[in-house]
Simulated scan of single mutants.
Amino acid sequence: MKWQSALAIYFLFWVFSAFIVLPFGVRTSQELGEPLVPGQADSAPHLFRPWRVVKWGTIVATALFALFYLNYVNGWVTAEMFDFAHR
């Protein structure tokens, strides 16, 4: 696998992971007992921490990409294993 392909696949894993970890640890103002700002949605987070999302997204993406790359190198799961029509 070329390094450019690996980088692109890692980027896709990273974006996917960032959306996965985005809702974890979020507390609304109502849950914290803080007053709402006029016009604020009830479901809006009280304090959004983007660096937390970046950190955990990177950790999850690295783990998922490592599994993907190990499967690519070792061939644990292949496309032929999912070809149910021609068995």
Results as ranks from 00 to 15, higher is better:
residue 15 V to T: 08
residue 10 Y to E: 00
residue 27 R to S: 14
residue 81 M to W: 09
residue 29 S to L: 15
residue 50 P to S: 08
residue 10 Y to D: 00
residue 37 V to F: 13
residue 27 R to E: 15
residue 78 T to K: 14
residue 81 M to N: 09
residue 61 A to W: 00
residue 85 A to T: 14
residue 77 V to D: 01
residue 62 T to E: 01
residue 59 I to G: 05
residue 65 F to V: 01
residue 63 A to K: 05
residue 23 P to C: 07
residue 32 L to W: 08
residue 26 V to Q: 15
residue 54 V to M: 15
residue 58 T to R: 03
residue 73 V to Y: 01
residue 23 P to V: 02
residue 33 G to T: 08
residue 65 F to Q: 00
residue 76 W to V: 10
residue 82 F to I: 02
residue 82 F to C: 01
residue 70 L to A: 07
residue 80 E to N: 11
residue 23 P to H: 09
residue 75 G to A: 02
residue 11 F to K: 06
residue 83 D to L: 11
residue 35 P to K: 13
residue 37 V to W: 15
residue 37 V to A: 02
residue 29 S to R: 15
residue 28 T to M: 09
residue 83 D to I: 10
residue 3 W to C: 06
residue 19 F to M: 10
residue 24 F to P: 04
residue 82 F to W: 11
residue 84 F to W: 10
residue 65 F to G: 01
residue 32 L to E: 08
residue 79 A to R: 13
residue 38 P to H: 06
residue 68 F to R: 07
residue 60 V to W: 12
residue 33 G to K: 13
residue 22 L to Q: 15
residue 79 A to E: 07
residue 67 L to P: 03
residue 4 Q to R: 07
residue 35 P to D: 10
residue 12 L to Y: 01
residue 45 P to Y: 08
residue 76 W to T: 08
residue 44 A to E: 14
residue 77 V to S: 01
residue 7 L to Q: 01
residue 13 F to I: 00
residue 84 F to E: 05
residue 45 P to H: 07
residue 20 I to G: 07
residue 55 K to S: 08
residue 47 L to K: 14
residue 24 F to T: 11
residue 22 L to V: 12
residue 1 M to D: 11
residue 47 L to V: 14
residue 14 W to G: 07
residue 43 S to A: 12
residue 59 I to M: 05
residue 12 L to W: 00
residue 14 W to H: 05
residue 26 V to A: 13
residue 8 A to M: 06
residue 68 F to N: 08
residue 9 I to V: 14
residue 71 N to T: 09
residue 26 V to D: 13
residue 1 M to K: 10
